Every structure is written in C-alpha cells, then in structure tokens.
Simulated assay, not measured.
Amino acid sequence: MKTFSSIQQLLATLSREQKLLSELFEKRKILSFNYDYALELVDFDADKITALVDYAVVRQNGNNLELDDVFLQFFEQVMEVNEEINASYINEHIQNIKQNIIYYLQENNEGRKYSYLRQVKQALRKIGVIALRNVVDLNRNIDNTFKNEPNYKIKQTKLEHLDDKRATVYKLINETDALVSGEDEVTFFRVAADEELNRLIVVLKLQLNECRHNLIDIQRQIIEYLNRIKHHSGVIEKLRQIKYLKDQFELRSKTDIKAILAENTAVVFEPNPTYPLNIPLDQLQTDSDALNIIRKVAKGKHSNVKTNQPMAEGISDEYLETQVQEEIQINLDEVKNGFLASGNNLFDFIVNYDYGREVTFDECITIYCQMVSQYDTLFKITDAYNNRQDVEFAMIYPK
C-alpha cells in the first residue's frame, strides 16, 4: 500500500477524483457500487481507480468499490452526518488534557510549557464540538429507531442501548465541566490562565450546558418511547392470546369476556339510534294538505293495479360483436427502476429505452418531463446541459 508523500499530493488526488469520491460517499450505504459505473465517472481511465486503491482511499472487493474506513469517517465527521455515537472521543480528550496539565506543571522551559498549553486548548475546542455532535446523533438515532425498526424487541433493546450511551455522554460532560471549573486542577487554571484560555472555557461551558439540556429532553423522549413500546407489545400479546383462544373455541369458557363486554358502555357497543319524524296531531287535524298526502300514500300502498312495462326492441347484432382495441401503455415506474440501475444520463436512457412500441422524439421529451417531475428526489440533477434536435435538456443521473 502506498502512502501520500505530502498534503499537496493528497489534496490533488482527492480534487482530481472528486466526482467518483462524491458518488461513493453519497452511496456509502448501498451494498454494491459497480466498478463499471466508477470507470465511467473517471472517463474510463482505469489507472485513476487503481491509484485510489493503491493509496487506500478506495477499497475494491471483487467488482465492487467502497470508500476506505479512514476517509469515510473523515468525510462523515466533517459533513456532520456520522450516525455513530462514540463517547470515548470525549474521554480521550479529557485524559489528554489531564496529562498535558501534568506536563505543563512539571516543565521549566517556557517554550515547551506553551506547547503543552496549546494542546490543552486544542482538546478543549474539540470536546465541545464532539459533545454537540454526539447529542445530535443520539437524538437522530433514537428517532429513527422508534419510527423505522419493525421488531418491538429489537427496538426496545436499541433504545435501552442508546439510553446507556446518553448516560455515558452525560457523565463525561459533567466530568469535563468539573475539570474546566478548576475543581480538580486548581493550580493549572490559576497559573496558565490567559485571555484565550478563559474564552475557550466560557464557550465550552455554554456548549456543555446546551448538551446537558438536550440530554435531559432526550432522556424524557426515550422514557416515552419505551412506555409506548411496552404498551403496544402488551396489547399485541393480549390479542395473540385472545386469537388463540378464539381459534380453539375456548374464549368464552376460559375468559370473562362476556361479562366484560356486558359492563362496557363504550359508544361503539351502543345500537345505532333512529330519529323517526312524527307529524304533530294538531297539524293532521287542521291542515287539509297533510290529509291529502296521507290519502295518496295509503292509496299507493293498497293499490293492486299492475302496470305493464313496455318492451324494448331487440338489440341489433352489430352491437353484440366483440371489438378489441389494444394499446401499449408506458409504465413510468418500470422506466424509473431501469434508469436507477443504469449509469447513463436520463435523456439518453429514455431515447434508447425499449418501450415495446415505436416512440416519437416528442413523446420522449414528455416522458423526460414526467420522470423529472415525479421522481426528482431519486435523481441527481446537474448544472450541465446538452442539446438534441434543437431541444436543450439538463444532464440528470441516478443518485
């Protein structure tokens, strides 16, 4: 494995292959990133991919590529999209601060003392940022787990594990607050205090206080989610037992469901009310129109007269002949699935797609517009444009 000889070489390599690296990062959760598609992104220059593999920027597994863990973690942390809650980072920086404080107090050379002080300041800056990121990632993971995990037992276990993470982060925040408050290292913060260190401590305390408030809210959210899971799982378990007894025809003999339903006064068990419209007797006695209406209704009910319905003419045989008209419909969902599996741009894919019938250029433009309007969230719409038969269109690729 090769290593970069300088920062300039590293940045030049990342910049030159930014298109491929961006696609690999955006599709980092997809199980496979095809080598042929990557080859298209580097203008079919296989040496570029080979160089990335040699420098351990990209790892190749058969015909698939993926970002190396080091660069993937770096990109996720810089872009603040990391989903892993790692409280050990905070603990490492706390221990680093304590060690450098000891070195600072034991050192007599002013130059080396300043280097230890600078490392303490760097660690203080990192702790606040890492704590805030952990709180954000923790909140997002809790929400995603409760909403997206279908298995109740796994969902409960994950939430309990995340609650342990929350408690660990909260403990480390309190430890950091005690450290910068001078409770453990009184001598250092009195001797080494300068304007920059004091400002860093004030900023860090504000960040830790914000984290503390958010963690309290996260704890309340976890408790609420666990109570919901417990209630839902209990209801489901009861329904399963009732379903089993019902299937065994033992529900009435082994339970008191009949007595419970008899005592239940819920509206759903009440009969539907009826509201008959009764005509007042005073109106029937005084209103002649009401009497005439009653007579007509009574006459219709007691009438034995049978009316003969007129017979329609026979239906012509021409109307009974079966006429079949076939039309091939274009399934946009199938076109979309085919496009996401390809590496081509959208317009060329639509023009070359096999629809089962001949499609005109105007129909291709219509399909292109329909695809963009319905599935734009699945596409990567670039700023590049192309022309075909005096028609300008944007270059669109699958995400």
Rank of each mutant, 00 (worst) to 15 (best):
K336S: 09
D362R: 07
Y385T: 10
D376F: 11
N387K: 13
I330V: 15
Q325K: 14
L340E: 11
E321Q: 15
Q325F: 13
T360A: 05
F339G: 01
Y375K: 04
A312I: 09
T366V: 09
V335I: 15
N386Q: 14
D348N: 11
K336L: 08
Y385D: 08
S342C: 06
E326L: 06
V335K: 09
V335R: 14
R388E: 10
S373G: 12
Y375S: 05
D317G: 10
E327I: 02
N331H: 08
T366S: 14
V335P: 10
N345Y: 05
I365N: 05
N345H: 06
E318D: 13
Y319F: 15
T377S: 11
Q329V: 09
N331V: 04
Q323C: 11
I381N: 08
Q323E: 11
Y355E: 01
F349E: 00
F349K: 00
I367L: 10
N344E: 08
G314C: 07
N331L: 04
E326N: 07
D362C: 01
Q309T: 10
F379Q: 03
G338F: 07
N352C: 01
E318A: 15
V335G: 12
D317M: 08
E313L: 12
V351T: 05
Y385E: 15
E327T: 04
T322Y: 15
D362Q: 08
D354Y: 05
A312C: 12
L378S: 13
I315W: 10
E313R: 07
C369Q: 14
V359S: 03
V359M: 03
S373E: 12
I367Y: 10
Y385C: 09
V351K: 04
I367V: 10
F361E: 03
T366E: 09
C364E: 01
E313H: 13
I367G: 04
Y353W: 03
D383H: 10
Y385K: 15
T382E: 00
I328N: 01
I330C: 05
V351F: 06
A312D: 15
A341D: 14
A312G: 15
D383Y: 14
